[in-house]
């Protein structure tokens, strides 16, 4: 039982990060039909920039804020320099552009930062909290609480603000959004900036547990994408559930079966689910857009 609880907590912690990456995919996909494979790089930038700023003597909270701002600037640049000029290109072309951007950002990170693994000190110590026989790292609570706050903030933004509704309107019907005066190009740029901020926050929160390096983005983007597909592409609730599910599958796979194949176990289950439910757990009947 203690073991089970332990796997649950570690699975949910990693899953929360996947959920945030999947949410980043979802926000950009809904606003623009683009699947942004540079989403994992935002997580990397958040963690790496915070590590290097704190090493340079900047206090952690300020370093974190600067890192988030840096990721947002990168997100905006990605939209303005790579996505916007290719407006009207097919989704496949746009996806290839984001893969290119991801490779570029990874290369840039090797130059700006370095090729080592880095960690951050835990925000509130490393003494595990004993709970039902399981030892829970205090940082896990930071990750889970951070993810929870982001989800609530996003919910309030989309349901309570006019700009949030304008983003939903753009996702629902781009032509109609333009006809009521919504600047859809701004909305898409905005969604890149928000997704970048979410990714960076995830990267900062999880670095004390999982470490970070210039190339963590690739696998995170893959896991986040798998989580988004599992939940149903374009569905925010699906992204959260999908992310947590992938994290739990990994933790249980590693704990009960084999840690060597933990990634494979998660992907096999996802393939199995998608085989039966091609739209994902919360998917729409049809995702084809004309």
């Amino acid at each position: 039982m203690a073991e089970f609880l332990q796997f649950c907590v570690s699975g949910l912690t990693v899953g929360a990060v996947y959920a945030l990456v999947a949410l980043g995919f979802t926000i950009i996909y809904n606003a623009s039909d683009v699947v942004n494979f540079a989403q994992g790089e935002f997580v990397m930038i958040g963690g790496m920039a915070t590590v290097f700023l704190t090493a340079a003597g900047v206090p952690l909270p300020l370093a974190a804020l600067i890192a988030i701002a840096a990721a947002m600037v990168v997100g905006l640049a990605l939209h303005r320099l790579a996505i916007e000029p290719a407006r009207g290109a097919s989704p496949v072309t746009l996806i290839i552009i984001t893969i290119g951007a991801s490779i570029f950002l990874r290369g840039l990170a090797q130059v700006v930062f370095d090729r080592q693994f880095h960690s951050l000190p835990s925000f509130s110590g490393d003494t595990p909290i004993q709970f039902g026989g399981a030892a829970i790292l205090p940082q896990s609570f930071w990750v889970l609480a951070g993810a929870g706050i982001i989800v609530l903030a996003l919910w309030a933004f989309f349901n309570r603000t006019l700009l949030g509704k304008a983003v939903l309107a753009t996702a629902a019907n781009r032509l109609a959004a333009r006809l009521v005066g919504i600047n859809t190009s701004f909305v898409v740029g905005f969604s890149f900036v928000v997704s970048a901020a979410i990714g960076a926050i995830a990267g900062i929160l999880v670095t004390p547990i999982t470490l970070t390096s210039y190339d963590i983005g690739t696998l995170l983007a893959l896991k986040g994408f798998a989580a988004a597909m599992l939940g149903g592409m374009g569905n925010p609730l699906g992204a959260i559930v999908g992310g947590l599910a992938v994290g739990l599958l990994e933790a249980f796979g590693a704990g009960y079966l084999s840690s060597t194949y933990k990634d494979a176990i998660a992907f096999i289950v996802i393939l199995g689910v998608l085989f039966v439910m091609p739209g994902g757990l919360f998917g729409r009947a049809s995702v084809e857009r004309v």
Binding site: L168, A169, A172, N173, V180
Partner: peptide
């Protein structure tokens, strides 16, 4: 302002 062909309302909203 335009009322477009096929209404084009925001169906989920």
């Amino acid at each position: 302002a335009q009322v477009p062909e096929g209404r084009q309302i925001f169906t989920p909203l």
